[in-house]
Amino acid sequence: MRAWVLSLLMGLVWLTGQAWAGDISPVIPKAQGACVDEPQAMRRHHFDYLKHQRDDTLRSGIRGAKYSLKECVSCHALRGHDGKAVPVNAEGQFCQSCHSYAAVSIDCFTCHATVPDKAPKTAGVTQ
């Protein structure tokens, strides 16, 4: 009896999982050009890279290193229809879409600029 209930439940979970799988993946806006590192590595380790770099830059004054939050924003902030840059932490934008999917809050943008000072590098326009 218990085995029957269990298999029924598992079947249900599998079915609902199949039904929802297509809907919940994040839609991540694409930047043009190549990233400073392999996208696979960036996805896994970007926070470690950035955290390491933040200390180097702020405390030691090392500039122009490979990883930089400023550079992330300058490539990944898209232009809106009004021609202005859209904050990377806005709903559906590069940082936010993935972070809300993974349910990880970002503390960077309580302080850091979410749009580049100059026009964004990327030609992409937000949908």
Binding site: V73, T110, C111, A113, D117
Partner: peptide, 16 residues
């Protein structure tokens, strides 16, 4: 208070 429109070179935010 909460800060907005920060410049790239000077990240700044509430509570610091």
């Amino acid at each position: 208070e909460d800060q907005t429109n920060q410049r790239e070179a000077n990240p700044r935010g509430k509570g610091c």
